[in-house]
């Protein structure tokens, strides 16, 4: 009996303790800055280096580039950029290797939809997904100009 009573004491004590339940979805759940949510893509900064597509462990990024329409400048410009969110695991390796931080994570995580086709996001959707963009991107996988030591690439 004694054990049972001690247990009951603990239960009764917690009846009067502070409740920690949050009222999501009525109140939005604020994630910390480093949270890995759905990606945001900035086409102007992309140099079509293809590192993100190469490093993706599930190969969910497909992109194509076209030569720069401006005849003065060299390099490529991004034309299409798709992420298949059915298989994206939000692992954050693509932002880690992007040298120009063209692809970054946001803190949005709500992507539920009723149809699988809605999960195949193209460049326009990713460009417009610019709320709650993560500030600290820590792209240690990209080539670090002039920094010694912590360099790592795929």
């Amino acid at each position: 009996m004694k054990g049972l009573l001690k247990g009951l004491g603990v239960t009764l004590k917690s009846m009067t303790a502070k409740k920690i339940t949050t009222s999501y979805p009525d109140e939005p759940f604020v994630m910390p800055d480093r949270f890995r949510g759905i990606q945001h893509f900035i086409p102007d900064q992309c140099i079509v280096c293809n590192q993100c597509a190469r490093v993706c462990p599930t190969e969910c990024i497909t992109l194509t580039g076209k030569p720069n329409p401006d005849p003065e400048k060299k390099g490529k410009v991004i034309e299409t950029f798709d992420i298949n969110f059915e298989i994206c695991i939000l692992c954050d390796l693509c932002t880690e290797v992007c040298p120009t931080e063209a692809i970054v994570m946001t803190n949005n995580f709500e992507l539920a939809s009723y149809s699988r086709d809605d999960l195949y996001m193209d460049i326009n959707w990713l460009d417009s997904n610019n709320k709650n963009v993560r500030k600290d991107n820590n792209n240690i996988g990209a080539p670090q100009a002039g920094k010694g030591g912590a360099k790592k690439d795929v």
């Binding site: 949270f35 695991i89 939000l90 692992c91 954050d92 993560r134 240690i140 912590a150 790592k152």
Partner: peptide, 21 residues
């Protein structure tokens, strides 16, 4: 952990040679 590496369950935190964040 969420504050540290951005995920609650699948952290992808350690790297060969150290940690990411």
């Amino acid at each position: 952990f969420n504050e540290l590496c951005g995920a609650r369950l699948t952290y992808n935190y350690m790297r060969v040679g150290g940690v990411k964040w």
